[in-house]
């Protein structure tokens, strides 16, 4: 059975069909690309899948559970994590605190034992610290652990968003333009990171990207959106050579 099964998903804002009749099927372990020109509805699709918007029609089933109408926090608990196109870090907190917040539902103790510093507090805080540092080390930003997130350079901020999403221990990771604003070297490094986490964290990844080098380099399957509807779908090499897709991107 597919890990994520999206059926005829759609949302209308006023009279505008931002996403219409989207069908997607992600198997466990897939590295799937969602591409399309600006305004095609890619980020809207992500917002639908993470519960930020409620779909006007259609459904999506994740791991056997219908998630339509669930709140973002509940969807996160089900095992879907995401990053944002316009970086949304907790800017006034340190890098390590950002990751610890990602671990919020993995390591738990009550507010009460936090306020009165019961033994559980020390035990679990130690775990928070170790786990967060371990994750930061995987992504090689553990040296910046005490820096405020807003003071990180751009590339590292994007990385930190991925680390924070990884901290929620997801089964499916949604990456919204992870390479935006990166130089070619950083993009290559990012491609390696994405491959690495898929192998080592047993992940399925769905990503939105404009950088064709990254898309053709790592995505195995693609869906192309244009004006909210699916233009083409299938194996990466096939889709990228589709005349319709070339027309949508470059024009005639």
């Amino acid at each position: 059975m597919a890990l994520l099964e999206v059926k005829e998903l759609g949302i209308t804002f006023g009279g505008l069909k931002a996403v219409d009749n989207l069908n997607l099927s992600l198997e466990k372990g897939d590295l799937y690309g969602l591409i399309g020109p600006n305004g095609a509805g890619k980020t809207t699709a992500f917002n639908l899948l993470t519960g930020v918007y409620k779909p006007t029609n259609g459904s999506f089933v994740f791991d056997g559970v219908n998630l339509v109408g669930k709140k973002p926090a509940d969807i996160s608990k089900m095992g879907i994590a995401r990053t944002f196109q316009n970086i949304r870090l907790f800017g006034n907190l340190s890098v390590i605190d950002n990751v610890k917040i990602g671990l919020h539902n993995q390591i738990k103790y009550s507010t009460f034992s936090g306020i009165f510093k019961l033994s559980n507090y020390f035990k679990k805080e130690k775990k928070f610290e170790e786990e967060a540092l371990r994750l930061l080390k995987v992504f090689d930003i553990d040296k910046d652990a005490d820096t405020l997130a807003k003071n990180l350079p751009y590339g590292k901020q994007r990385k930190l968003e991925i680390v924070r999403a990884m901290a929620t221990n997801p089964k499916l990771l949604l990456l919204d333009e992870p390479a935006a604003g990166m130089n070619p070297n950083e993009t290559i490094e990012l491609m390696n990171t994405i491959r690495y986490i898929r192998e080592n964290f047993d992940l399925t990844i769905l990503l939105i990207e404009h950088d064709m080098k990254l898309v053709s380099g790592i995505c195995e399957k693609l869906t192309v959106l244009n004006f909210g509807t699916v233009l083409a779908q299938g194996e990466t090499s096939q889709v990228l050579n589709d005349p319709e897709v070339i027309k949508a991107y470059i024009g005639e």
């Binding site: 993470t50 930020v52 709140k71 973002p72 926090a73 509940d74 996160s76 608990k77 994590a81 995401r82 944002f84 949304r88 870090l89 907790f90 800017g91 917040i101 990602g102 919020h104 539902n105 924070r164 999403a165 901290a167 929620t168």
Partner: peptide
Amino acid sequence: NRIAAESIG
């Protein structure tokens, strides 16, 4: 960031 906080549960 409320939206990001929600997105991580």
